[in-house]
Design a protein around this nucleic acid. Sequence first.
DNA 1: CTCCCGATAT
DNA 2: ATATCAGGAG
Length: 218
Amino acid sequence: MLTKVQWLYCLDEMERMFPDAHCELVHDNPFELLVATLLSAQCTDVLVNKVTKNLFQKYKKPEDYLAVSIEELQTDIRSIGLYRNKAKNIQALSKQLIELYDGEVPPNRDLLTTFPGVGRKTANVVVSVAFDIPAIAVDTHVERVSKRLGLCRWKDSVLQVEETLMKKTPMELWSKTHHQLIFFGRYHCKAQNPNCPECPLLSVCREGKKRMNKIVAQ
DNA sequence: CTCCCGATAT
DNA sequence: ATATCAGGAG
């Protein structure tokens, strides 16, 4: 397991690697971020941005998503994948926003998770990015990197990973650390072929040292 | 646990 | 051909 000192070393190195890590989902307001994040499930943000570029010109407010048929909305987001669920969720979410929140996205994680298609990860992204509320959204990259490093156990749930990250990271760094973990996972510690030989975190990484030993043994 | 699902990288 | 992508719901 990583010690507190080793984790703080990782934070320092990731700051060197990705000093300007940020949310890469293009958006102009909390509602657009909510829709973009919902669309991003099991899909790259590059593809989400390609779709939302047109989508956000056509649909500005929750009412706009309810003014079209489900089939039309499906067609507008089809290239994203999982488009039937996502179209249904966007319309149901829009309806709930209008009826209960006057069309405004509530800046509260627990309220956000009551929306259809919005789980803890999506809610954490919205409160953190749109409202500057400290949170650590655990997506596939954050989970993989945390487990490879040995910050948490392989069997841990995403909620346990999030709790460990919050416990071991100073709260004022939560949002920045969250984005740096994503950049690190996306561009360096990739799911396929992680670049361990050139990794600044190799000296403290459980999985990295294991992989390097395998290479040396051959 | 399974299902939803198209686009892209390997 | 297969793995993976800013997951969530049943």
